[in-house]
Structure formats: structure tokens, C-alpha cells
Design a protein around this nucleic acid. Structure first.
Lengths: 139, 139
DNA sequence: ATACAAACGCAACATTGTTGCAAATAATTT
DNA sequence: AAATTATTTGCAACAATGTTGCGTTTGTAT
């Protein structure tokens, strides 16, 4: 596990430090999105707030994670599946927010349907945000 | 104009005050979404920050405006066309953020395509966020 | 016009995000 | 393996953004 984590960091040209290992581990454990505050809490009081900000930013820049806009003004971050490595781009995809448990997940399998824009508008990226009840809360 | 504004406020069971009239006027003038900071700036130094917060919240609750999540963690607000009056709900719709001018608009005419979720997931609301270049910036 | 209810501004505070810099840690070189 | 270099970290200080309580002002209803 530890080895895997270091590998991922190196593959993304990130020097491996205890903070980055810990935060990446959180992402790997939790199959969902994390807000900054989640990370602060779960990482214990071990790391400075600033470090968390900078780590997330570094992860973002390397394309290890991507950000998910939410309605409640708290950006969440989630691992990119097949490292959107290289640039910042990642394929359009669908995010699901459960209104029961509050969990946010990426629905990687679900494709974003094509959309018809008015004349003159050009689309670059499409983000879909579905809210509802997730699998575990429905059963 | 002033009459129209008062009418809208009354229709939504909001007492008409100078602050609310001013902010509603901003929304009517600007055919796009406004962030809290926009409103503070454009309203001049006339109103307290707290008043703006509370006004937006009141407008939200009455269904006069709705909030639009954005990627940069700055919630924007836009008038609901046919007052989503009554409750908080408004129909699913598409928001467009122009990467050139930064303007955010609701594409009311564009319908959100149906989406196929994995088994066990139930959708309640769908939000689409398209980024790209808008009509005026494309010409 | 008066009484009542709601909204306002102010102050104080909590939370969230940013920046500069010295010390600590990781990567690289010898 | 030790020394050099580059990066990251934590701290402190700050800026921006939200929130709450409360006395005063303003709107609404009688």
C-alpha cells in the first residue's frame, strides 16, 4: 500500500512527503470526493491547514485529482481514475451528490449526453451534477 | 420600473425596502448571474455586507433567484424566469460560463438531456454546467 | 396615527483561503 | 555516505468571506 502510494506520487512528479502520502491515502481509502475540511479533519491535527491547501493544489496541477463544484459552495476533490495525467483536462463526467448521506461520487461509467446549445455558443467542457439518493442509502 | 420591482417583491411576500429594490434592480438589469461580491460592488457602498447576505437568502427562499455552483468556488445567483414561486424547486436547467468574459447565464431554452444512472441511484435534480465561449465573445 | 413586525446596520466573531519566510525534509550530486 | 541543492513544511500574519446577536430604523397592518 505504502509502496503503491509512493509510486503514484513519483509517477506524477511529486516528491514524496509524509503529508502527501497521508492525503493521497485518504483519497484512496474513501471511494468518494473529499472537501478541504474533510481532509483536515481526517488527517488529524497532524498537518497545517496551509499544507493541505498546497497539497491539493499540487495534486490538481498534476492531474491527480479534479475538483467538483457543489451547490453549497464547498468544492470537493476526487481522484481521477486513469490519471488525467499530462494536462489539467479530464473527460467530462457526471458527479452524484447523495442528499441523504451527503456523499459525493464520480459516476465514471455514465456518459454525459450531448447537448444542443443556442447559436453562437461553443462548448469546451460539460459538467453534470446530479443530486438524489445513492445506492447504499436506497437500500 | 420601480413599480414593477415593487410588484415582484410583493408577489413574493417580501416587504419592499430600498435594499431589496436595489438588489432586485441589479438582477433585472444584468441578464446574467451575479456573485455576492458583484452585488456588493455594484450596489455601491450603500448597503451593509450582512444585508446583502440576508437579502440573497430571502430571495432564494422565496424562489425569486436560484444559485449556480461554479468551479471556482464562488456561488452565483440568477433570477428565476417564471418565478420558481412556491417552493425552492426550479426546473433542471443548463448554465453556461463563458471562459472569455466570465459571464454566467442560464440557458433557459436548452433542455437537460435524460441521463442513465447506475442501478440503485435515484435522481432528484440535475444541474448542467457548460463552459465555453458565449455568443458575444464568439463574434 | 399607532402598534406591531420585519429588516437594517453595527460590532464581534468564525471560517476559509493566501502570502512570505525561516526551518525541516526530500532529491540530487559528488 | 556526506554534502549540496531544491522543495516542502509550519508558523505568523493577513485578507476575504460568512454568521450571529442586538438595538435602532423602517415597513406593514390595524
Amino acid at each position: 500500500m505504502d509502496r503503491k502510494i509512493e509510486e503514484i506520487l513519483k509517477r506524477n512528479q511529486l516528491s514524496v512527503t509524509s503529508g502527501r502520502k497521508k492525503i493521497l491515502e485518504l483519497f484512496l481509502q474513501q471511494e468518494g470526493a473529499l472537501a478541504h475540511s474533510d481532509i483536515e479533519k481526517r488527517a488529524g491535527e497532524k498537518f497545517d491547514r496551509v499544507t493541505v491547501y498546497r497539497t491539493l493544489q499540487a495534486f490538481l496541477e498534476k492531474g491527480l485529482i479534479h475538483s467538483i463544484p457543489t451547490a453549497d459552495n464547498s468544492i470537493r476533490y476526487a481522484l481521477c481514475k486513469e490519471n488525467c495525467s499530462g494536462g489539467h483536462h479530464h473527460d467530462d463526467h457526471v458527479h452524484f451528490v447523495c442528499s441523504a448521506c451527503g456523499n459525493t461520487v464520480c459516476l465514471e461509467g455514465v456518459t454525459v449526453p450531448p447537448i444542443h446549445l443556442p447559436k453562437g455558443f461553443t462548448a469546451e467542457q460539460v459538467e453534470m451534477l446530479v443530486s438524489g439518493v445513492c445506492k447504499s442509502c436506497n437500500s
